[in-house]
Write a protein that binds this DNA or RNA. Structure first.
Length: 469
RNA sequence: GACCCCAUCGUCUAGCGGUUAGGACACGACCCUUUCAAGGUCGAGACACGGGUUCGAUUCCCGUUGGGGUCACCA
């Protein structure tokens, strides 16, 4: 398929949340899959609710996720004249009319309609009235003259054929009383002018699509292909809220997730390619299609996100991880890493990264490499350092001091010798050793820890004075 | 309330009339093992319910129930 144009059209009223990120991802993947274009449009026609901070947050979020758009982002607000022009054309062709109804009148219509069970909320008060009846001093809105009879059908790529009776479609407002365009008009005009061929968006817009389709027909334009994707739900199945993780993508970044993790996780949420689970971005581009999108809403599962992140952390390049860890390390240590420490980190990373689920965890697990001398023991580790253990470690230290080659193999041999001569199981030596070296009961293999720490630092950490009392 | 959408293990899902209903995460056990991970083996775990259609329904149709979305001069 050629000439595919998709778009992501967020309204800048907040950060780029996880649901929006997935919508953007699907649009991006489809465009890239088809060799088409992926456009970004900022829907800022509601000037009171829009903010530049939000625009920034959305763009940063997309950047971080690696979802690059083609061309410059379009600001909807800059296209107002064009929207008004379209509304005027509709007015001229008789597809739209001026409505002078007051808010009170509209409210009355609605309550009446709801009580009567009528589907149409606007009763057509000004639909066919003569303009001469227009009250003075009231600025009218421009309403679309929606079809009263028949049905509107959308052949949605995800939802299938969806039909709605036209008597349930209201005469939507195109231009507000102050002359500014509404979202309903703006999307239709902008999607057309931008040459959008595929509208992939949340299914909360499905109901809007029927109104838009009629508007498009009145304008004499071609309909885009629609794909309304189910919304993401929270772990309890309810609508996604902040509590559930409807956080900005930057929150996921701060929690230590990698962008490739999010891409993989999000594409698998509601889309599948057989039994494939770990899907690289390139594979996602190769495989993505609208047919693979499921029709039922999916719930967010952080445990699976953790698992995937562990996978991508393990795959990640060490120097990249080191750079990503730098701010966190600096925060923990209150200083930057020295050149030797950086080297040490690079040596430790292969051992470290296979046991972490997030970057945050990775940082926490690596701190002990950079403390001055032996790190403070946590409770469990302290228990291992009994008087017996400490004197044993002293003897081990003496042996280590004379060691020729400081390699993991040689170190293991030395430790095993001590265990043997003291008639201890290896664990009885290794665990106190780990406690002394790392301050914890959990760490990478002790021999690797010693290797990375180096002779000097290792011996320094083994100079333990027996506990007082 | 009206309209629209949805329904397979706890979760994400495969399935597109005939399968021992498959995989992944999480969970349990075991193996490996100096700890923790990783890895390996095994295990438990699902077609919401009721009618049809059909020789045969997880699969097609209808209804029920449950969940979700939308009903603005917001987007």
């Amino acid at each position: 398929m050629t000439d595919v144009v998709t778009r992501f059209a967020p309204s800048p009223t907040g950060y780029l949340h996880i649901g929006g990120a997935r919508t953007a991802l699907f649009n991006w993947l489809y465009a890239r899959h088809c060799g088409g274009r992926f456009l970004l449009r900022i829907e800022d026609t509601d000037r009171a609710r829009s903010s530049e901070d939000a625009v920034r947050a959305i763009i940063d979020g997309l950047d971080w996720l690696g979802l690059n758009w083609d061309g410059e982002p379009i600001r909807q607000i800059t296209r107002t004249d064009r929207h008004i022009e379209a509304a005027s054309a509709l007015l001229a062709s008789g597809h739209a009319y001026r409505c002078y109804a007051t808010p009170e009148e509209l409210e009355e219509m609605r309550t009446k309609a709801r009580a009567a069970g009528t589907r149409r909320l606007y009763d057509g008060l000004w639909r066919d009235r003569d303009p001469s009846e227009a009250p003075a001093g009231i600025d009218p809105v421009i309403r679309f003259r929606a079809p009263l009879e028949g049905a509107t059908v959308i052949d949605d790529k995800v939802q299938g054929e969806v039909t709605v009776q036209n008597d349930g479609l209201d005469d939507i407002v195109l231009l507000r009383a102050d002359g500014t365009p509404t979202y309903m008009l703006a999307v239709v005009v902008d999607d057309h002018d931008m040459g959008v061929t595929h509208v992939i968006r949340g299914d909360d817009h499905l109901n809007n699509a029927f109104r838009q389709v009629n508007l498009i027909a009145a304008l004499g334009w071609d309909q885009p292909i629609y794909a309304h994707i189910p919304l993401i739900h929270g772990a309890d199945g309810a609508k996604l809220s902040k509590r559930h993780g409807a956080l900005g993508v930057e929150a996921y970044r701060d929690m230590g997730y990698l962008p490739e993790t999010l891409r993989n996780y999000l594409v698998r949420l509601g889309w599948s390619h057989g039994d494939d689970e770990t899907i690289s971005t390139q594979q996602a581009i190769d495989w993505f299609d609208l047919d693979g999108i499921g029709r039922s809403p999916a719930r967010l599962d952080l445990a699976k996100l953790d698992n995937l992140n562990g996978h991508y952390l393990n795959l990640a390049d060490d120097s990249r991880l080191a750079a990503l860890m730098a701010p966190g390390l600096a925060e923990h240590l209150g200083r930057e890493l020295s050149a030797t420490e950086e080297k040490r980190l690079m040596e430790a990373l292969p051992d470290l990264k296979q046991r972490a689920k997030t970057l945050v965890e990775l940082v926490e697990n690596s701190i002990f490499y950079f403390t001055a001398g032996a790190p403070a023991c946590d409770e469990k580790a302290a228990k291992l350092l009994t008087a017996d253990a400490i004197s044993m470690l002293g003897r081990l230290r003496d042996n280590l001091e004379g060691l020729q080659a400081w390699t993991a193999e040689a170190l293991e041999k030395a430790v095993r010798q001590i265990a043997e001569s003291e008639e201890l199981k290896l664990g009885k030596v290794a665990q106190p050793l780990r406690a002394a070296l790392t301050g914890r009961t959990v760490s990478p293999g002790v021999f690797d820890v010693m290797r990375v720490l180096g002779r000097e630092e290792t011996l320094r950490r083994l100079e333990i004075s027996p506990p007082q009392q």
